[in-house]
Design a protein around this nucleic acid. Structure first.
Lengths: 105, 105
DNA sequence: CCTAATCATTAGCGAAATCTTATGGATAGC
DNA sequence: GCTATCCATAAGATTTCGCTAATGATTAGG
């Protein structure tokens, strides 16, 4: 049932903010540290979680690491949500039909 | 930017399982307690989180409460993920075009 | 009424998550 | 080489989270 690690990873406000910052392209750890109210260490640790969840990619350039959004992990999240959405809708419609032909609360 | 409470709420495996059980219609707290390896108290507490996140609805019938999936909260999650996805794709394409007309790593 | 059933809520505890500080490794630049 | 920069990692403190146990409120049923 997809990779639920990604769902756990985005279940944190700081990491979501990080992803939002990354949404327009590559950024270094230092750039995120300048913007966010946590230390560089915290950023690196969050990046590891995002990386292991397949939500970000790293590209090493000299002594800095450029992080960017990985659509792979995001696809896992989408798959879960969309699949769930469809199932609920289907059940809802099925129930509506059933109660229409057999009215009772 | 939508309701991020829902994203926090689904960032937990037990709550995701609960939602999965609810996906085909209404269920009582007792029914979930029978299936899941936690106490009734834990179920009720998770339900509160899901309710406050707009992910479930409650319907009181006698002394029991029937919970069902609320598509509203789920729409928030979808909006966040889909919007994010589109932005990333747009930035990716934009960057691709830019580097194509001005080649440099 | 009296009891059982159903669920919410509170209090408290252990575990896990998040953060900071400290340190080390690697690269850049002089 | 030497130093500064950039980042990861380790260690430890603190906060948050998820859970259980206990209790109370409400309703159903004899």
């Amino acid at each position: 049932m997809a990779n639920e690690t990604a769902l756990d990873a985005i279940g944190n406000a700081t990491r979501r903010t990080m992803l939002t910052i990354l949404h327009d392209g590559e950024h270094t750890v230092g750039q995120l540290t300048d913007v966010l109210p946590v230390t560089q260490s915290a950023i690196s640790q969050h990046m590891r979680v995002l990386r292991e969840a397949g939500l970000v990619n790293v590209r090493e350039v000299g002594r800095r690491r450029l992080y960017s959004v990985d659509l792979g992990g995001l696809a896992d999240v989408r798959a879960w949500v969309d699949g769930f959405w469809d199932d609920v809708l289907a059940a809802y419609v099925s129930h509506a039909n059933q109660t229409a032909s057999n009215p009772e609360s």
